[in-house]
Design a protein around this nucleic acid. Structure first.
Lengths: 220, 220
DNA sequence: CTTGCGACCATACATTGTGTATGGTCGTAG
DNA sequence: CTACGACCATACACAATGTATGGTCGCAAG
């Protein structure tokens, strides 16, 4: 998936025989961490746990990654790459706005469901690590940019907002999503109910962009 | 190290005449932590730092507090107690809704400005400590309850929302605030500009509650 | 006076976690 | 055969947390 093995020359094919580990340890480390993250919080996860789970030695771990945080960063890049596809139809405007909005919100929910561990980890950790901070801030920024562009080119939403504030509004919606998806993943009511999550987020987007929060289905 | 015994400033004033648990050191610990938090993140703060800054011994620290987190919990309770007063006029409805909303948002901004260190600390840490988690979740919950009550008793806002969703909407606005105030405190654009912060949050509240985001001053 | 107690300090320790060596094994390319 | 690259085992240096031990000081009651 195109990342960048800039660390070192990892691409070797010497896995012909004997070793119990013929594949890239790097992937094993990533997979193990991803799985551990489904049941543990990132900060209560030690590299020793990852080592045990991946069946890798301490030395090998630090050969491929400079720190635990770097592993998370890779996993996040992986997850968001997957998410940018989900966000694509979101920025189209081929269908009616509210429907498109709801579809985008739903895609986000699925992305978060599929990558709950990793995404929760980064939301909890980006405040305490510079690399993770920049990564996440950049991600939120990309999303905000896309939303801003969409809003400004929307004949209904665009004019309603002062152009100075459009970006701020887009940013606030982005961060609202970040928080609500996180709360849902963390099972914090009332967002632990996915339907409530999606309805509420969709309500927020449509209300703020179109000033219309009614008619958002009322099926409880 | 601190080989110099000059730290014993407590000497004769040890306990002026008071009774059990006069606990002057306790206050010193709280104050020192509060101040340190203005320039450091909570997780990059060791108890040794607090000890140095407060001029207290390790043993005394653990006499008063079971952990670093407990100190933060106390500071947070302190700050939010101060904030509940700020939130009171917020739940009144004596003035026009948008004005009241903006006033409430502004109060929140002031609270966050005055207690930035402590509040940032808890937002960053409530995910990793059970005590802090419950404390913060309860706080968000109290705020959500108040907002819900306000919305439901509001002739303009109440009817517009399905009653099932009212609480969820209130919760999302609460968490939006948490996130945006935090970002402002962390100097993340565009919310590092307090005017943008307040305008955007006010826009969100009025849009979602009243479906009206226009006429929110366009002075930019 | 002296004994007890509560607030407090100094220091050492057990434990856990991180990141950095150091040195060794084993297959394959040269 | 030898060098090298991928890998492992282990130990170490460091930092931080929380606990334990024992001691000082001031006051109050016997």
């Amino acid at each position: 998936m195109s990342c960048m093995p800039s660390r070192r020359t990892v691409r070797s094919d010497r896995r012909s025989a004997a070793s119990p580990a013929s594949a890239e340890l790097r992937e094993r480390i990533l997979s193990a961490t991803r799985e551990l993250l489904q049941n543990s919080r990132f900060d209560s996860l030690s590299v020793a746990d990852i080592l045990d789970s991946a069946g890798v030695s301490r030395a090998s771990f630090y050969f491929y990654f400079p720190s635990k945080q770097a592993v998370l960063a890779d996993l996040v890049r992986e997850a968001v790459a997957q998410g940018q596809q989900a966000a694509r139809p979101w920025t189209d405007q081929e269908q009616d706005p509210v429907t498109a909005l709801r579809a985008g919100v739903t895609d986000g929910a699925r992305l978060w469901r599929d990558n709950a561990g990793v995404l929760m980890a980064i939301v909890e950790s980006w405040g305490s690590d510079e690399e993770l901070r920049e990564l996440w801030l950049e991600q939120m920024n990309l999303f905000t940019e896309a939303a801003t562009a969409r809003i400004e080119s929307d004949p209904h939403a665009g004019p309603r907002l002062g152009s100075t504030h459009t970006r701020a509004v887009a940013a606030s919606l982005t961060w609202l999503g970040e928080r609500l998806y996180y709360l849902a993943a963390a099972s914090v009511p009332p967002f632990d109910d996915e339907e409530v999550l999606i309805d509420t987020l969709t309500t927020a987007w449509t209300s703020i962009l179109y000033g219309d929060s009614s008619r958002l289905e009322g099926d409880s």
